[in-house]
Structures are given as C-alpha cells and as structure tokens.
Design a protein around this nucleic acid. Structure first.
Lengths: 259, 259
DNA sequence: ACGATTGATTTTGTACACAATATGCGTCAA
DNA sequence: TTGACGCATATTGTGTACAAAATCAATCGT
C-alpha cells in the first residue's frame, strides 16, 4: 500500500464519527456495501454523522469513492445528504415509518399473492431451507444473523415472484425497515422477528392458498409494526417528536393517516 | 459567461449525440431536470448515447455536474450506466415493461382506494381542474403538453393520497412509463392518453366510491398497456426482440408471466 | 452571566489533470 | 471481399488541489 500523505499530526484519529466495527477487513471492496450492511445491522444508528475523510481513511479509499457510495445510499434512502453539511444516517419520521409499513403491506401482499399461485416445488424447498436457517440462528442466540436472514427472506420472496420492478422497490423498502426499527424499537419488548410467521407463510404458499398467504403476510407486517413504539422515542428524536415535527428541519408536509 | 477553453477546433460540434432541443435556455439550472424532461417528452429516445463532454458543453457546466445528474437519472432508472462505456437512455425490456404496468396497477390501485375514502372537496376541485387543463391541451393538439399533464395527474393523485413512500415509488414508475411508450408504441394506433378515463376516475373519487375508483384506475392502466405493441418493435430493439433477448447484452434472467 | 461576533479550523463542493479503457479506422493477409 | 490486427483518437474513470461553506471556540460588549 502506498504511503499516506503526512497528515498524521493534523488528523490524530477518526474520532467518534463511526463505529470501528464497520471496518473489519481492510479490503477495497464496495464501500457502499460496507456502510449499507452496517446500517442494516444496527451498527450505525440513525442520525450518525458520516464524515467523508474519516470513512475514506478507514476504508483506505479516496473521498471520491466515499462520495459515490453516498450517492447510492441516498438513492436507497439510507442516508440523508444535507447540502454543505454532509451525510447522516437517515432517521425516518413516524409518519414515514407508518407509510413504509403500509406500502409494504400492499406490495408484499401482491407479491405473495402472485407467488402462491405459481410457485414451484423447488422454490418451496428453498423457502423452507431459509426458514430453517433463520430458526437455527435465533435458537442459537445469533440475533444479528437472524435479522439478516429475516430480511433476506422477504427479499427472496420478492425475487421469486418474478416481477423485477416489485423486487427492486421492495428491496429498498426492506432495507429501510431496520432503520425504522432502530429508531423506534421498544426497549421493553423482545422485538424478535416472529419466525413462526415465516414458516406459516411458506406453508400457505406451498399449498397455493393465495388468500391465506396474503393474510399471513399482512398480519406479519402489522405485528412487526406493532412491536414499535412511536410514542416514547429514542433520545435522538425525542425533542423533534415531542413537538410533532420531523427531526429534519426542512419540509414537513401536512400529514394524513396511513393506508 | 466566462470564455470557453480553446477546444473549438478539436470538437467541431456536439455531433448526433443529443437533440439540440434539449438545451433551449443557456441557464445553469439543474442538468438532471433538463435531461429528465427531455426523456419524459420523448425528445431523447431509448438507447440514445449520452456523452459527458457534449452535454457539459451544451449546458455550460463541468463534466462533474453531468456525472452527478447521471447518478440521479440512473437511480430513477431513466438511464443505463455501462462501466467504461458511458450512459445511454434506458430501454426497458418487454418483461420489464409488463412488470412496470403490473406494479402500477397494484400501487395506484391502493393509492386511489385510499384517496377515494378520505379526499377533501378542495382536492376534488383541484383534480377536476387538472383534468380540464389536460383536456384543453389535447383538444388544441398540444400532445406534448397533454402528455406532461397526464403524467402529472398520476403524480398529484399519489401525493394527495398522503403516503409519501408510495408517492416516491410511484413517481419513479410514472417517470419510467414514457420510456416504455417510446420503445413500444404502436405507430398504427392513436396512442392518445384517454382523458375521459381520468375524468371518470375523479368522479368516482369525488363520491367516495373506492371500489369504482380502483376499478377505473386499473382499467385505465390496462388500456394504456394494451395500446403498446410488444411484438413488432422499433428498429432499436427489433433484432434483440426477434431473438427473444433483452437488447442489453448482459444478464437476461428467466422470465415468468406478470402479476 | 448571557448572547453576539469574529477568526481559526474542519468539512464539504467542484474543477481539472491525468490514467485507463473503449472506439474507429486503415492496413494487411488470406 | 472478408476478417484480424494495431495504431490513433475519443471517451470515461479517478485522484488531487483548491475554493466555499459550516463549525467551533474564544473574545468582546452589554
């Protein structure tokens, strides 16, 4: 690796900006993926400032690379880009979070409806394997792995349904969900992703019972949403929410109830 | 305006890359918007190469600015970014186009269902005004303006429904639709956006008849889709489609029927 | 003691130069 | 005539330097 510029005395260390665990390997592999994974894993929490130079040094890449990654993360709504003020991990408002779940109910409802009608036995087998792996992770207390598998389960279902537009849209929504959970999870509850519901869903799909599959999926999403606490919030958001405002200072459109 | 670099002898003119009509005003306003509008208006057709320097000179900005615009356009799926080979206007495949319409039926169905239930009289008034303007444009033969208003109609409905997540997703889908039309429009048919259907939709929404509104919206989208010709294609795509391949050379996943 | 102001420092934004890659054309051989 | 090769040109990719803006802290005045 080429020698770095003599900036060491000026920049003692990448202070407090990012959790060091987001850089376990010094590879020059996709910065985007690394940050994305960190957000999905709750290692980076909402509103965390993402400094360009700090991340660039951390990953051993140039600022340009970090900037490219930022652009993609912003397109996925995982970070917020504030002009001249840098990037922070997105912090979905309550309204946005509700809208997200409502949208997921509609879209994933349509997806499982389609999949239940035309699923192959091979696909069912694959889905069962996923549920099993997820179950295994939770039973062994590997919560982080379980969460990832749970997210993947929804993504795989979307892909199997065969509508690429839906799959892409859902990928974004599924990725945003962990951010909502991070922002509004209820510390007093278990928040374990009901694995049983995934198993039931696969059963319904396997016997081509589209109506049941849709019902279970919507129920599953409602149950996830109900585990959140939109009233008593995390410190990062509490002031903003107490006053009924979005934490971002600009643009708070008048809100209505969700779907 | 500062003098340009003495590159005139090396670059005689921005040849054939872009329609000159996309640069009617020499403003340094958003490059993204300019290109986006050009694509929505069918002034830039699918597969058109977008050269960075040509566009930069055309708009009087740097290549960096054009690149930023490209990143956003790519996120909106309006252009395709081929590594080391530059950007071209996206050319949706047949499968992708069908998926897009299927997704729109589901999402816009949910949107009008919600809107019909909670619409205000003020909103109805606004919708009627939009239909009127659209009708006016078509009656006066302003097809381009009519198309824009028609697209806006769908966007406004999505915004009024109040689910920001749906509104954002739909914005992307609505923006992609003109590209599909450009790629697969049937030259032998009129392809006029049935303004009457928009009026009927507003009527159903106005009387809070959610079921009728959903039915009309889905019917409207099906009618739009049925005006397209997925068999006998434009020159740009015809070879690829004759052989059952996506025009892009890489990655053609096995396809299933749409929702 | 509090708030405003100014200046030093940090951080982000942008233009440009150079490197890497692709494209197009002319030549040559079969 | 056709196809392959190689060079010249055009085009995209990326690192870096500099400019602009925001942040932070100390100072000053009330």
């Amino acid at each position: 690796m080429p020698a770095l510029k003599a900036k060491a005395p000026k920049v003692p260390q990448a202070v407090s900006c990012t959790d060091p665990t987001i850089a376990p390997v010094p590879s020059n592999e996709s910065v985007y993926e690394r940050i994305r994974e960190a957000i999905l894993d709750h290692r980076l929490s909402p509103r965390t400032k993402l400094k360009e130079v700090a991340l660039a040094e951390l990953f051993g890449v140039t600022r340009s690379a970090v900037r490219h990654a930022f652009a993609r993360l912003h397109a996925m709504k995982l970070i917020e880009l504030r002009p001249n003020r840098g990037a922070i991990v997105a912090s979905p408002s309550i309204a946005e979070s509700r809208d997200l779940f409502a949208a997921r109910r509609t879209i994933e409802g349509a997806i499982v409806d389609k999949l239940a009608r035309e699923v192959s036995t091979q696909q069912v087998k694959e889905l069962r394997k996923m549920v099993q792996r997820e179950d295994h992770a939770y039973r062994h207390g590997e919560m982080r792995e379980g969460l990832k598998l749970s997210v993947d389960f929804h993504r795989v279902i979307a892909t199997m349904a065969g509508n690429t537009v839906f799959a892409e849209v859902l990928d974004q929504m599924v990725s945003r969900t962990p951010l909502v959970v991070a922002a509004y999870r209820d510390a007093t509850r278990t928040n374990t992703c009901a694995n049983r519901e995934h198993a039931d869903l696969v059963d319904a799909i396997a016997v081509h019972d589209a109506d049941a599959a849709v019902r279970i999926m919507k129920c599953h999403l409602c149950s996830l949403e109900s585990q959140l606490n939109f009233a008593d919030n995390t410190p990062a958001n509490e002031l903003a929410n107490i006053f009924g405002l979005d934490a971002r200072s600009y643009k708070m459109p008048p809100r209505r109830s969700h779907v």
